[in-house]
Design a protein around this nucleic acid. Structure first.
Lengths: 217, 217
DNA sequence: TTAAAATATGAGTGATGCTCATGTTTTGGA
DNA sequence: TCCAAAACATGAGCATCACTCATATTTTAA
């Protein structure tokens, strides 16, 4: 992507005029609201266009098809998450934290993002599988997260091979994501417990690759 | 379900005659093949009916809607998986295996099932989110697996509370399922590595709740 | 044998994603 | 300032798909 504004990704025509840009923004806002409340399948393109006060024809000037709106919204979310976690991982203070605290921070940050962005859950939950492009977006987003985590972990244990770093990053990102994702549907008590278990799980696994230095009997 | 045959679940009318039963079987077989090769969204009910040599009207005598076929297929798969794992967990020899070997068996069995039943992956991958009933089926299937694992784990450490058993079962079932699920798309080398990592992950986590008896410095 | 109940059938209906012919606005050179 | 050409806007209408229902056929049982 040569363009810094992810809004334009997958657009049929890039809006040049102010009015057009406003229309695209309105469409995305309305679509996100409808997808979240009604679901992707039950939301019609005509309804989005009508509620955004945009003729259906103009709608299709910007978006090649219905799926493209969801892709645009999904891209916005994955971008936010990656930036959020990268900021954490790149903080010098965090990099030198003992492993348990490090895992705490990582899991808490991911959990926090999920809680603060309920649309993320709603959008990805909805049309997964139906839209192959969505899976690619999620996959690409995870790749980026894994890459960030890899550099952070390499710093922590320079002895690990690239293959090991890749696999450990993959497992940790996927597992944390999956468990916290599942915890969203649960009630408050169970959710907190699952966050705790996620930390326990990640820490136990990490210790296979980052042995505690101060281990003595 | 009072009926032992899961094929009839969610049917509009239960086929009483031999011919009807054959028709339903043909529909399910054709639908599974088409869903797997073409995908759920791109497969039309008319195409299923035509290829199964059943008029579209008769199709809808048996199935209330398109989603019901997928549900029937999904139920068949989850039933098979549960039976497969329950058999393993209920084997007396397995119950007394040391934890590492126990985890090995559990993970290998799940992996084996995924490999032997590619349709499971295809069917669930496809229309998740689009069909709320599918999520319920998957959720119910996981609940059953968790229940089976709970009793097996309770035997292994009677000191654990119900809440702990529930959470540990939940985490392990979900995490193993998720990682092995993801491993399916990967190439052979990476797949084997991920199976290994899944074992490592599950074992490390288990050791929080099942301390090694023979631990001494 | 036959009337009623159960089952089979496929043309037709409504809804939805998307197009395209036509109309309107903006642009930039003279 | 004027005008022609390019860019943009519009919504009635098309194609497709899930699903129905009026009618025809078969089975049941008295």
């Amino acid at each position: 992507m040569t363009d810094g504004v992810p809004n334009h990704a997958g657009l049929r025509r890039k809006p040049r005029q102010t009015r057009s840009q406003e229309r695209v923004d309105r469409i995305l806002a309305v679509a996100e609201a409808l997808f979240t409340t009604e679901g992707y399948a039950k939301t019609t393109t005509n309804a989005i266009a009508a509620q955004a006060q945009v003729p259906i024809g103009s709608f299709y000037q910007f978006f090649p098809d219905k799926a493209a709106i969801l892709q645009a919204i999904a891209l916005r979310y994955t971008g936010r998450l990656q930036q959020y976690l990268k900021t954490l991982l790149d903080t010098p203070d965090v990099a030198v934290l003992p492993l348990p605290e490090y895992v705490d921070r990582l899991v808490d940050a991911t959990d926090h993002f999920f809680v603060e962005n309920p649309g993320y859950h709603a959008v990805f939950m909805d049309a997964q599988g139906t839209i192959p492009e969505l899976n690619e977006i999620e996959s690409a987003a995870d790749m980026a997260l894994i890459a960030d985590l890899k550099t952070a972990l390499a710093q922590r244990n320079p002895g690990l091979s690239q293959e090991d770093l890749e696999v450990v990053g993959f497992v940790v990102i996927k597992v944390i994501g999956n468990l916290l994702w599942l915890s969203i549907d649960q009630d408050q008590t169970r959710r907190q417990r699952l966050v705790l278990e996620t930390k326990k799980l990640a820490l136990s696994y990490f210790q296979n690759y980052f042995p505690i230095e101060s281990q003595h009997c």
